[in-house]
Amino acid sequence: MKTALLAGLALLLSSAAALAQTGPAAATLPNSFDRTIAVPAAPAAPPIVQTMADERSEDALRDFIAGAAAGDIDTSNLSDDLITAITAQADQVTPLIQSFGAVQAVTFVGKRDGADLFSVLFANAETEWMIGFNDDGKIGALLFRPAPTE
């Protein structure tokens, strides 16, 4: 969003400079800073649905975290696309997960977009994880982020 705003401002400034160099046209350029510009709101995240977790989710999530913490991620239960993504990011993700420390608690929060959402409390971090399975029964979606602060 900030990048788009900066790009928009850069375009506006370059247009103003071009008009200023052409003479009288510069006087017709409206003062954009005095106008209110409507900025579209970011789409809201889909709601979290409170249902039962997929029976495979928690064990698969714990196994992935344990493998990452040990520096040995088992890719046999991951989709090909996810293997590619994890392999590309392993040098950043593995040390990060290792820095979280031991898993203290894994709590199912709900479902979002067909994936299960978990809160995972580590010794040194609080995180949120999403895990989802593809039609072949392999993990096709796996995301994590710091737990939101309220």
Score class of each variant (00 low, 15 high):
Ala4Gly: 06
Ala4Arg: 04
Ala4Val: 13
Leu5Pro: 05
Leu9Lys: 05
Leu11Thr: 14
Leu11Ser: 05
Ala18Phe: 14
Ala18Trp: 14
Ala20Val: 08
Ala25Asp: 06
Ala26Ile: 07
Asp34Ser: 08
Thr36Ala: 12
Ala41Val: 13
Ala41Gln: 13
Ala41Ile: 11
Ala42Lys: 09
Ala42His: 09
Pro43His: 07
Pro43Phe: 10
Ala45Asp: 11
Ile48Cys: 09
Arg56Asn: 01
Ser57Lys: 04
Glu58Val: 09
Asp59Gly: 11
Leu61Phe: 02
Asp63Met: 07
Ile65Asn: 00
Ile65Val: 14
Gly67Cys: 06
Ala70Met: 08
Gly71Glu: 13
Ile73Cys: 01
Asp74Ala: 02
Asp74Leu: 02
Asp74Asn: 09
Thr75Gly: 05
Leu78Gln: 01
Leu78His: 01
Asp81Val: 02
Ile83Lys: 02
Ala85Gly: 12
Ile86Lys: 06
Gln89Glu: 14
Gln92Met: 13
Val93Leu: 13
Leu96Cys: 11
Ile97Ala: 02
Phe100Thr: 06
Ala102Cys: 08
Gln104Trp: 04
Ala105Val: 11
Thr107Leu: 07
Thr107Val: 14
Phe108Arg: 03
Lys111Trp: 02
Asp113Met: 09
Asp116Cys: 03
Asp116Thr: 05
Asp116Tyr: 03
Phe118Met: 08
Ala123Arg: 11
Asn124Lys: 12
Glu126Lys: 07
Trp129Ile: 09
Gly132Glu: 01
Phe133Lys: 01
Asn134Cys: 01
Asn134Pro: 03
Asn134Gly: 02
Asp136Ile: 01
Gly137Leu: 01
Lys138Ile: 00
Ile139Ser: 01
Ala141Asp: 08
Arg145Gly: 07
Pro146Trp: 04
Ala147Gln: 13
Ala147Val: 09
Thr149Leu: 15
Thr149Glu: 15
Glu150Asn: 07
